[in-house]
Design a protein around this nucleic acid. Structure first.
Lengths: 223, 223
DNA sequence: GACTAAACGGACGATGCCTTCCACTTAGCC
DNA sequence: GGCTAAGTGGAAGGCATCGTCCGTTTAGTC
C-alpha cells in the first residue's frame, strides 16, 4: 500500500523505509539482507561487507546506500531472529505449565544460537545506540523474571535459581555453538539437557540428549 | 645446565633456544613473554603485536627476531599454562577418589579459562603444525578417558557421561569466560557448579556457587 | 518516447594490522 | 680498550577491510 499522495509529511531523512523505495531498490535490499543472513549464518559476523555485496550481486555502494554502516546491516539482518526469540518467550509465558514453558524457550533460543553462528555473535555483540534492540532486551528481561518466578512457585525450578542463570546458560551455549563446529547442534542439545536437568528442582525426569562426540583436538572453532 | 662445549652438534637453525641467547636478548625475551601474557589475559589474543612490543619496551623487530610469527608468540606465551593444565590432570589421576580428582581438574581448568581471556582463546584456537601442542592434547585425552572410567566405576559419575562432555564443559565455560566480562570468574564458578552437579550420579551434595548477577544487556563480551 | 531523480557499480582513499629491512648499538671475548 | 657478531628500533612494504565518490544506467511518470 503506497502512501497517500502528499497528505502525511515525508518521513525523517534517515532511513526512508523499505516501502518508499523504487521497485528495483527494494528487491536489491531484500537480496542484500538474504545474502547477509546466509553469510553470517555460515561464517559469523566477521564476513566482509564486500563479500556480502558480491553474494547479493550488487556493488558495495548499493549496500552502503541502504545500510550506512556495517553494524546497521547486521542489526537489520537479525531483527527477524530477535523477534522470533521474543515470540518464543511470549509463548512460554502463555503456557499453563511454567516449567515446560521455561524449558521450551531455553531450548528454542539455544537451538537458534547453535544453528546460526552469526546470530550468536550478533546476539552477544550489543550495539550501543540501537534503542529498539535495547528495548527488546528490557522486555525480555522482564518476561524472563516473571517466567522464572512462576516456575519456582510451581515447585519445578530449584529455589536457588537466579534469573541471571538464564544468561549464564546462553553464554555457555554460545561457547559451545561457537566452538563445536559441525557438531554444534548436537553439542548444544546435550549441554542444554545437562543444564535443564540441574536447573530442575528434584530428580531428573527423562534421558539426556546423546553426546556430541567432541574431541579435544577438534576444539578449534575460529582457527 | 649448559651444554657441554662443542660435543653435541649445534641445534637446527630454527629457534636457537633461550639458553644460547645473549644476556640482554634473554632478558628481552622474557619481558616480551611477560608483556604478551599480561596483554592477552586482559584483552584476548587479538592484541596487536606492536602493542605487546610497546608494552615490553622493545621494538617490533626484536619481538619478531625471537618469535618469527604472531602465532609462535602466542603458543610460547601459553606453554606454561598448558603445562599447568596437564599437571592438574596428573594430580587428578593420582587422587584416590576419582570423582574428587575429576571435579578438581574441571574446576581448575575452568578457573584458568575464566581468569585469563587470552588463554581461553589460545586454548581453543588450535595451531596446525604445532606438534608439541598436539602431543599434549593426545596425552590429555588419554588421561581424561582413564579418569572418567574410574569415576564411573566408583559410581560417582553418571553412567551416560561421555568423555566428550568434558570438552562440552570446556567450550561452555569458554563462552561464559568470554562473555561475562568482569563477572567471568563468578559466572564460571556458577556454571561449573551446575554442570558438576548434573554430571554426578545421584543427588546433589553441596550448595551451588552464588549467582553471577549477569544481565541480558551486559552480555556483550567483544563489542 | 522523453525526462528526471533515484539507484547503481567499481574505483578510490583511509585505516590498522602483520611482517621485513637496514643502519645503528652493544654485549662478550681477546 | 678494541673487535665482531648478535641484537636493536623504527620505518616501510604488503594486505585486507570499511566507507565514499562520481560517472553511468534505469525505473517511473507525463
Amino acid at each position: 500500500m503506497p502512501a497517500q499522495p502528499s497528505h502525511n509529511p515525508p518521513p525523517a531523512s534517515p532511513d526512508p523505509g523499505p516501502d518508499a523505495l523504487r521497485a528495483d531498490a527494494r528487491e536489491n535490499r531484500e537480496r542484500i539482507l538474504r545474502a547477509a543472513r546466509e553469510a553470517y549464518a555460515v561464517h559469523g559476523i566477521d564476513v566482509p561487507v564486500s563479500a556480502i555485496a558480491r553474494r547479493a550481486g550488487v556493488g558495495v555502494a548499493t549496500l552502503y546506500r541502504r545500510f550506512p554502516t556495517r553494524t546497521s546491516l547486521i542489526t537489520e539482518a537479525f531483527t527477524e531472529q530477535l523477534a522470533e526469540c521474543a515470540g518464543a518467550l511470549d509463548e512460554a509465558l502463555e503456557d499453563p505449565d511454567p516449567w515446560r514453558g521455561f524449558c521450551t524457550v531455553v531450548r528454542k533460543v539455544c537451538a537458534m544460537q547453535a544453528a546460526d553462528r552469526g546470530f550468536t555473535h550478533a546476539f552477544l555483540a550489543r550495539f550501543p545506540g540501537d534503542t529498539a534492540y535495547a528495548g527488546e532486551l528490557d522486555r525480555a528481561e522482564e518476561g524472563l523474571a516473571l517466567l522464572v518466578r512462576r516456575a519456582k512457585e510451581a515447585g519445578a525450578l530449584r529455589p536457588d535459581f537466579d534469573v541471571s542463570d538464564v544468561v549464564l546458560a546462553l553464554l555457555a551455549n554460545n561457547g559451545v555453538a561457537d566452538g563445536a563446529g559441525p557438531e554444534a547442534a548436537a553439542a548444544s542439545r546435550r549441554l542444554v539437557g545437562y543444564l535443564l536437568e540441574s536447573f530442575r528442582a528434584g530428580p531428573a525426569t527423562g534421558p539426556l540428549p546423546p553426546p556430541a562426540g567432541l574431541e579435544l583436538d577438534r576444539l578449534g572453532g575460529t582457527a
